[in-house]
Design a binder for these strands. Structure first.
Length: 96
DNA sequence: GACTTGACTATCG
DNA sequence: TCGATAGCCAAGT
C-alpha cells in the first residue's frame, strides 16, 4: 500500500497536483482515499517524495494548520496557486 | 473478530 | 459555495 502510493507519488510532475482518491485509485486501491492519507502520514518529514502535491477532491488542503502552510508554500513555489484557499483542479490536476 | 478512527468523497438542501 | 450527511475501507485497539 505505502510503496504503491510512493511509486505513484514519484511520478507526479512539479506544478501538478492529485487528489487523495485518484492517488489511491492509481496505486491500485479505488475508493481508498482515506487510506492514501494515512499512508502519507507515515512518510518521514524529510522525504524526497512530493507529498505536498496531494490535496482533497475539493481542491483544498486537508492538513492541520502548521503543515498546511508548508504545503501551500511548496505548491506556490512550483506554480500551483491557491485562489481563496482553493486550488483550481481543472487546471492543475495531474492525469496521465 | 467486533469496533473505532480518520491528510476522503459524493450528494443534497 | 457551504455545511451536514451518509457511505467507504484498511489499520489499530
Amino acid at each position: 500500500m505505502l510503496t504503491a502510493i510512493c511509486q505513484v507519488l514519484a511520478r507526479i510532475p512539479a506544478g501538478r497536483v492529485i487528489t487523495y482518491g485518484d492517488l489511491a485509485a492509481m496505486a491500485g486501491y479505488p475508493r481508498a482515499a482515506r487510506r492514501a492519507g494515512q499512508a502519507l502520514r507515515q512518510l518521514p518529514a524529510d522525504t524526497a517524495l512530493p507529498w505536498h502535491r496531494v490535496i482533497n477532491a475539493s481542491g483544498r488542503i486537508s492538513l492541520p494548520e502548521p503543515a498546511a502552510q508548508r504545503q501551500r508554500e511548496r505548491l506556490e513555489r512550483e506554480g500551483v496557486i491557491a485562489i481563496g484557499g482553493r486550488i483550481d483542479l481543472g487546471r492543475f490536476r495531474w492525469q496521465p
